[in-house]
Structure formats: structure tokens, C-alpha cells
Design a protein around this nucleic acid. Structure first.
Lengths: 142, 142
DNA sequence: TGACGGCTATCAGAGCTCTGATATAGCTTC
DNA sequence: GAAGCTATATCAGAGCTCTGATAGCCGTCA
């Protein structure tokens, strides 16, 4: 199958473009895209565990450990042991973390809005349905 | 904008699924996805420069340098100075490189085929058109 | 009670990817 | 010929991502 006919190439290209644009968007806040995504989940679910963060951000726990290490070094998050489960660390935004997130979120949301505005509601629905089928086709009995 | 409503999340998820499945596909050949993609272009365009490879694989020249370093260390490619332009290095597959590529390509193509078979010709056309508009919306006046 | 399975967290290491900076070659223009 | 532009290649460094391996905590169940 020739290179250009592969659906994977189209998916890869869009994701790549998205990453580049988002990177430029969150950069002024001093964040990477992965850090922004982590802070986004953290903002909606304070005190969540690293393992749960990893699942929601779709990365491995090891990857999340790396991201959290950098965020903690920059004092954007704080991690404290769970009340009951001593093995679990609860992670929360610091004041600086929330501030950085809000700066980044304003710009990142604008990117998402620009993307969404390209399509009608009907088209968005179609696109999401097709993408969901891609995931299904790829994941089923992989 | 809530996390789940973002189109970027859907795109990210599909790309992520694709990478995982492809990684599993090319792994038995001893290749990474990036290496496989590089060998794929190299197979279709022997003697191409690293800069051109970078453009076709949609990575920076620096990233391609890293990939080529690993491929050369594994004797899967050979690089020789260009006849005229001494500044340019021509890259070609070695015998081992071609062998590894063919093993990987058989399995990777199967993944692409599985993905393509999920859709009718009409649906594929629609999906690609929508994805192209995503790229356009993201890239224009970024 | 103790073994087991499942969850948590993290270290180690390889590889990919980016930004930033540097050096060289060739072509164009003055 | 020198200046400047463009393209090549690569080093340096930070960060993300994966696989593999290790270790601790908690529940269940024999």
C-alpha cells in the first residue's frame, strides 16, 4: 500500500499539526502540552492519584511520573500522602500551578475553538463518529 | 470548554491507538515506528537526503538525525557523500535494512488495511476530507 | 494467618521529539 | 571576489514516551 493512501498518514498529520499549534499556545505559560493536559485534569479532579492521571491523559504511569516530577520541580503541583491509603499520593495544583494553567488554558481553548468552528454541528458529529470507529477498528482484538 | 468535548482529544486518542498497534506490529522486526516510517520512505526514494527524509516523515532534521544514527548503528542503512554536493549525504537501505523493512511492512500494512476496511470508500473519502479541514483550520494563520 | 492478586509508585534505560545554536556548501547578487 | 541567502548536517539539552523491573499496600480467600 503506497504511503499516500494510508489513512494513518492523515491521522498522524492532523495530530502533528495539533501538537505544534498547541505547543505554541501553551509555551508562553511556561508549559509543555503534556504538562498542560495534566494540569487540565488536575484542575477538574483535585487530589487524584498519579495512576488515575495517567489513565485520563492516556499515558503510562511511568510517563506520568516523569511529567509530575517536572511539574513538582517547578512548584506547579503539590503531592501529599493519602489519608487512608498511605501508598497513594494525592496531587493538587499550587497557586502558581493554577495561574499557569489559566494562562495556558485560555490560549489552548482558543485553538480548540478554532478547530471546532471549522465545522458545523453535523460535521463534528460525523467526524467524531468516524474517529471512534477508527479507534474501535484498531483496538478490537489487536 | 470541558475536556470531553474537545475534538483534539478524539484526534489524540486515535493517533495514540494507532501508534500502539503499529508499534506492536513492527516490534518483531526490531524496529520502532519512526524507524519503520523512515525505511518506508527510503525504500520508495533511495538516496534521499536526511533533510528530505525529515520533510516526508514530518519531523525536524534534528529528529531525523537521531533516527538515522540509530538505524546506521544497527547497519540497516548506509550513508555516502553525494557525488556533486559534498555537503549532502545520500542514504540507502542495506540488505539487512531491506529485510527488516519487509518484515515490518507486511505487518504494518495489515494494520492499515484493517483500518481502511472498517470504512466504505465513501466514508474514507469523507474522513480524509474532514481531517484535511482540521489541518487547514489548525495551520492557517497559526 | 498467610498466600495471592491487584493496586499504587518509582527506578532504569532506550528512543523520539522539540528548540536553539553552530558549521559548511552552493547559488545569487553586487 | 565578497556578501548574503538558502539548504545541508549535526551538537547540545530538555522533555515525553515507551518497555521492563522492583517494591509497598490492601483486599480477599483458602
Amino acid at each position: 500500500m503506497p504511503f499516500e493512501e494510508r489513512l494513518g498518514g492523515d491521522i498522524k498529520r492532523v495530530e502533528h499539526d495539533l501538537m505544534l499549534v498547541k505547543q505554541q499556545a501553551v509555551r508562553p505559560a511556561g508549559l509543555t502540552v503534556a504538562q498542560y493536559a495534566t494540569l487540565l485534569v488536575l484542575n477538574e479532579h483535585p487530589g487524584v492519584s498519579a495512576a488515575e492521571l495517567a489513565r485520563r491523559c492516556r499515558v503510562t504511569p511511568q510517563t506520568m511520573t516523569t511529567i509530575l516530577r517536572n511539574l513538582e520541580a517547578a512548584d506547579l503541583i503539590a503531592r501529599v500522602p493519602h489519608e487512608v491509603h498511605r501508598n497513594v499520593l494525592e496531587t493538587r495544583l499550587t497557586e502558581a500551578g493554577r495561574a499557569a494553567f489559566e494562562v495556558a488554558d485560555e490560549r489552548a481553548s482558543a485553538v480548540e475553538r478554532r478547530l471546532a468552528d471549522e465545522f458545523s454541528a453535523e460535521e463534528r458529529k460525523t467526524l467524531r463518529a468516524l474517529l471512534a470507529r477508527c479507534s474501535k477498528a484498531l483496538t478490537d482484538q489487536a
